[in-house]
């Protein structure tokens, strides 16, 4: 029997460049406080969010994803034809099939394998983990990963647990081969026992059947899946369980917090970020991604958007180490240390 030829593995991988695209509207707390009987002061105090980018009707989730992808490709010195895979992490692409990734690949001039993954706010870090593995295995040389959400299509303006936090945007990165280690081991996992802690209010089938156990629907009432969360439960998990995961990612990479240039957690809530920084005892020398203040919580897009914003503001971070961690609906989480491009 002949021996099967194998792809030549790459010893190391790295992130070649990040890119981003934001919603075209700046939505302030004043704009959204009315229907939830709240105020700018209350929202800032509870979440640290002052304004969030949202996309108008004319700016689709595909537009956002393609724009971020082109930005990342340009920053990486790669063209669409050089890509060997395109992975899109999203929970707001309005088609279960076909994938958004196929549209994005086409949008950047690529015929590479393309697929979506559903890992909510951990989606980008999940996608980086996959890209890292594909490159190291030699299955791909250059992989485009994108976290994108148009969450404003799935919110209820009168809902008080999560809708007011949410924004729209896309963040992308290109992962390719490297001479030196550029991506540490990913620490990731799930906790499906807490599946109901955060997610969409209803399934597509419940909407078809108008069969609501928890929210009976009046005749003629407009129905639509929107996001909900058990804020206290999620807060506790996000801070104290995810601080452990962040520490495990540092340990797996063989570094300590002192070695970091930046810490970029999922931009869920400034209070979560502050408490994580405290729990992890990060030194003051570590820059912390905090663009939730103006971007809101953009789920899968939040980590790459925050990294890209930090790199814009602090170009001296290039070549330094960043710990990025995503966590959210599932519950699912993923963290890895990367060398910033």
């Amino acid at each position: 029997m002949p021996t099967l030829k194998q792809a030549e593995p790459n010893r190391y991988s790295r992130i070649l460049g990040y890119g981003s695209a934001r919603g075209d509207l700046d939505v302030t707390n004043h704009d959204i406080a009315g229907p939830i009987d709240s105020s700018d002061e209350w929202i800032v105090q509870r979440t640290g969010i002052k304004t969030r980018h949202r996309a108008s009707e004319n700016l689709s989730i595909t537009d956002l994803a393609v724009a971020a992808a082109k930005d990342a490709l340009a920053n990486s010195g790669i063209i669409g034809e050089d890509l060997d895979a395109v992975i899109v992490a999203t929970v707001t692409h309005p088609h279960a099939t076909p994938s958004l990734a196929a549209l994005v690949a086409d949008g950047v001039g690529s015929k590479a394998p393309a697929y979506d993954i559903s890992a909510a706010c951990a989606g980008f870090c999940y996608a980086v983990a996959q890209a890292d593995a594909l490159v190291k295995a030699g299955t791909a040389q250059n992989v485009l990963v994108i976290g994108v959400e148009k969450l404003s299509d799935f919110i209820d303006n009168t809902e008080r647990t999560i809708s007011f936090l949410l924004g729209d945007g896309a963040g992308a990165a290109v992962v390719g081969p490297s001479e030196t280690p550029g991506i540490g081991p990913t620490v990731w996992g799930s906790d499906g026992a807490n599946w109901e802690a955060v997610g969409m209010s209803h399934s597509i089938l419940e909407i078809r059947n108008r069969d609501f156990v928890t929210h009976p629907v009046e005749e003629g009432e407009k129905i639509w899946p929107t996001l909900r969360q058990d804020g206290q439960k999620v807060f506790r998990w996000a801070v104290w369980e995810m601080a452990k995961v962040a520490q495990q990612a540092l340990d797996a990479a063989g570094i300590t917090a002192e070695d970091l240039g930046a810490f970029v957690p999922h931009q869920a809530n400034m209070r979560i970020i502050d408490q994580m920084v405290k729990t992890l005892k990060l030194p003051d020398t570590v820059l912390v991604g905090r663009n939730i203040e103006c971007a809101g919580n953009t789920s899968a897009a939040s980590v790459p958007l925050a990294v890209d914003a930090l790199l814009d503001e602090h170009p001296e971070l290039s070549g330094k180490l960043a710990l990025q961690i995503g966590f959210g609906a599932g519950l699912v989480f993923a963290a890895q240390v990367v060398v910033l491009p």
Partner: peptide, 11 residues
């Protein structure tokens, strides 16, 4: 004390 601070106190 808001719900987020309450959770921090609890932990």
């Amino acid at each position: 004390i808001d719900s987020i601070s309450m959770m921090t106190i609890v932990v």
